[in-house]
Amino acid sequence: MYRFSNSVIGYLNLLTLLSSIPIIAGALWLAKSSATCESALETPLLAVGFIILLVSLAGFIGACFNVAWALWLYLFAMFLLIVALLCITCFGFAVTGGGGGVQVSGRMYSEYHLGDYSPWLRSRITEERYWRAAVSCVVGSNACAEIVRWTPLDYMQRDLTPIQVRCTAGPLYFTI
Rank of each mutant, 00 (worst) to 15 (best):
S20G: 12
S20W: 02
P22T: 08
I23R: 05
I24K: 04
G26D: 08
A27H: 03
L28H: 00
W29Q: 12
W29L: 13
L30P: 03
A31K: 10
A31C: 06
S33L: 10
A35R: 03
T36W: 00
E38S: 10
E38Q: 14
A40T: 09
A40K: 02
L41F: 13
L41H: 06
T43W: 13
T43C: 00
T43H: 01
T43E: 11
T43P: 08
T43I: 15
P44L: 13
P44E: 07
L45M: 15
A47G: 03
A47K: 05
V48Y: 12
V48A: 14
G49N: 10
I51W: 12
I51Q: 03
I51T: 13
I52E: 07
I52P: 03
I52R: 05
L53V: 09
L53H: 10
L53I: 07
L53F: 14
S56H: 00
S56L: 00
S56Y: 08
L57F: 14
L57I: 01
A58S: 07
G59P: 08
G59M: 02
F60T: 05
I61D: 00
G62Q: 00
A63P: 02
C64Q: 13
F65V: 02
A68K: 12
W69A: 01
W69S: 08
W69T: 14
W69H: 03
A70V: 02
A70S: 08
L71R: 06
L71C: 08
W72E: 05
L73T: 15
Y74M: 09
L75V: 09
A77P: 01
A77C: 14
M78F: 04
F79I: 15
F79L: 15
F79K: 02
L80N: 05
L80D: 06
L81I: 14
I82V: 15
I82C: 11
V83G: 01
V83F: 02
A84K: 11
A84I: 09
L85F: 13
C87V: 14
I88M: 11
I88Q: 03
T89S: 15
C90H: 03
C90M: 15
F91A: 13
F91S: 08
F91D: 04
A94L: 14
A94R: 03
T96D: 00
T96W: 05
T96E: 01
G97Q: 02
G98M: 04
G98D: 09
G99N: 10
G101D: 06
G101T: 10
G101F: 03
